[in-house]
């Protein structure tokens, strides 16, 4: 037996069924996570809604799929596919933003995936994850301020809102996704992905 795992693990840009289904199941799982979050934040969330910059503190939670999926699957389009599918799931469950969540999901996914694409899908370190989270937050909140809060002040609202969301994206979606991957590694669920090769064999 060879000393290391086959290089076929990493090779190829072709999506295996496993890659597709993994992204899709992650999107569905996050559909559940977002739904459950409503119960955790019950009572607090509506209050924050009236001052948008504050509600952006937890914006990063909605961006995790955009960063986590490329970290695990490492295929072109993983972030966009997963984040957009997660958005469509809220659409089926009756999202108040209608079809626009899909546009926004696509944008956020694009933001999250950009740094990995810029590195030609070869670098998946903390820096790229943090940038991805921040860019996803930027993309998402730019959509918000442009379409839902266009009349608000630039410095009193738009800038702090986008800024807080980028910070939240960098921390929760960026560092959070890295932490999730690190915690998942020893469980063996990543063994069939390139990222799983970073793990000590058991």
């Amino acid at each position: 037996m060879p000393a290391t795992d086959s290089t076929a693990l990493a090779a190829g840009s072709r999506w295996r069924t496993l890659d597709i289904v993994t992204c899709a199941v992650l999107a569905v799982a996050f559909g559940v996570v977002f739904w459950a979050w409503n119960f955790v934040w019950e009572g607090i969330d509506p209050l924050l809604n009236f001052y948008p910059p504050l509600s952006a503190i937890v914006y990063g939670l909605w961006l995790i799929p955009a960063v986590l999926a490329p970290l695990i699957v490492r295929k072109v389009g993983a972030g966009v596919f997963t984040e957009a599918l997660a958005a469509s799931i809220s659409l089926f469950l009756g999202s108040q933003w209608g079809i626009t969540v899909l546009y926004q999901g696509l944008l956020q996914g694009l933001g999250g995936e950009l740094p990995f694409a810029a590195g030609r899908y070869r670098h998946f370190g903390h820096l790229n994850a943090v940038i991805g989270g921040a860019l996803a937050g930027f993309a998402g909140t730019m959509w918000d301020v442009y379409y839902w809060y266009p009349d608000l002040g630039l410095w009193t609202f738009k800038v702090p809102y986008v800024g807080i969301a980028m910070l939240s994206g960098a921390l929760i979606a960026g560092l959070g996704s890295k932490a999730l991957v690190k915690a998942m590694l020893p469980t063996g669920v990543l063994d069939r992905f390139p990222v799983g090769r970073d793990r000590r064999r058991i």
Partner: peptide, 14 residues
């Protein structure tokens, strides 16, 4: 939930 979801994804894909 995510660990369980990943396991399920592997089985479903197979």
């Amino acid at each position: 939930l995510l660990v369980g979801a990943m396991r399920r994804a592997g089985r479903l894909a197979a």
